[in-house]
């Protein structure tokens, strides 16, 4: 393609992921599009089961091994298309140009190999010519960079000998050993205490500044998103329902679901509210999504525009701050200012 504007570092177009299961087809991700520049952070938020992890696993090509998964759309990473790429091509990128950290480091690290050996292995896969000594130095250097005290001694420890926060650091060291240009962090701090979470977020921020990587931060915590993200995607029922620059999205949220998420959160930076204002009901099943707007059974404004919310799927408005809702921008702004914001 000979267009004048270069492609963003990561560009996902119309990504759809479905799983065939005994209970029916799970529409885990339906038509997500987003892009991310090097050095920037994209936050993906949503409740459990909204399709956050499936989105990120698709970028890493990890659904290829699942026979029941079907991925369509395009994923461009540094001008290479990944949905149609060969398994070898994707494998060469994983752990190299792109890598991932998970919520549960124990499941990502091998119990029978030392932490150091695993980092060395991760490095040598992508640097086959490098000898053991150099790889070992590199691993110790990475452990030191992520703040593990006495790294050359801890090199020989097993993952279970580390505390939760240290394990998360070690996994970050492993994920960053090949200077990835894209780092996907899937709820990396959800299982950690706030003090450790603060350390890990600080570390991700510092390392990003140092390496200039693009980061996708997946979380259900709007606070974590506000701390790190330049842009935010809000997912509901496998779809992106709102996306935009973080500051805009937090100051002028547009989608009734986003309002509900904000209303559900007690905030330390505000006076104590008498009452939280959560979304009613619970998230939908992705096998049997509600008709029209998937959020309509929980939306207080569903009946406003005739039957459309019940029959037609709203499409994203487009633009820098984009929303999938049948209400007009004026209507949403008015509701937010008059009914929602005063209760936040």
């Amino acid at each position: 393609m000979s267009s004048v504007t270069p492609r963003p570092y990561l560009e996902v177009k119309d990504l759809t992921v479905r799983f065939e299961t005994d209970d029916g087809v799970v529409q885990a991700v339906s038509g997500s599009s987003f892009s991310l520049e090097a050095g920037k952070t994209l936050g993906i938020v949503g409740e459990s089961g909204s399709g956050k992890s499936v989105t990120s696993l698709a970028v890493l090509g990890l659904h290829r091994t699942r026979s029941n998964a079907k991925v369509t759309g395009q994923i461009w990473l540094d001008d290479q298309e990944l949905v149609t790429a060969s398994n070898e091509e994707v494998r060469a990128l994983r752990g190299g140009k792109m890598s991932m950290i998970f919520q549960d480091p124990l499941s990502a690290m091998h119990p029978y190999f030392t932490v150091g050996a695993q980092i060395v292995e991760a490095y040598r896969i992508h640097h086959p010519g490098v000898n053991k000594k150099v790889a070992r130095e590199r691993a110790i250097d990475m452990l030191a960079r992520v703040g593990i005290p006495q790294p050359s001694r801890r090199f020989n420890d097993y993952a279970h000998q580390f505390s939760g926060g240290m394990r998360q650091r070690a996994m970050i060291a492993m994920a960053l050993v090949n200077d990835p240009k894209l780092l996907i962090a899937d709820e990396p701090t959800t299982a950690l205490d706030v003090t450790v979470q603060a350390q890990i977020l600080d570390l991700i921020r510092d390392l990003q500044a140092e390496f200039g990587s693009a980061v996708i931060m997946i979380t259900h915590d709007l606070g974590v998103v506000a701390e790190l993200a330049d842009d935010v995607l809000v997912m509901y029922g496998g779809k992106v329902i709102e996306q935009g620059p973080a500051i805009d999205l937090f100051q002028r949220p547009q989608h009734p679901y986003t309002w509900g998420l904000l209303g559900s959160m007690p905030r330390m930076d505000r006076e104590v509210r008498d009452r939280l204002t959560p979304v009613k009901g619970s998230p939908p099943s992705l096998i049997n999504l509600p008709s029209g707007c998937a959020f309509h059974p929980r939306c207080p404004y569903a009946g406003r525009n005739g039957d459309r919310s019940f029959t037609d799927i709203p499409v994203l408005t487009g633009g820098a701050h984009s929303v999938a809702c049948h209400m007009s921008a004026e209507e949403r702004t008015k509701i937010f200012q008059e009914e929602v914001a005063p209760n936040l």
């Binding site: 706030v194 603060a198 600080d202 606070g223 701390e227 937090f250 100051q251 930076d269």
Partner: peptide
């Protein structure tokens, strides 16, 4: 101070005031 504040405008201040243990 470690609790993340859901306000990106105050991000820098929150980070500066944070006591990292």
């Amino acid at each position: 101070s470690a609790v993340p504040v859901p306000d990106p405008v105050r991000r820098d201040r929150a980070q500066r005031d944070r006591v990292l243990l």
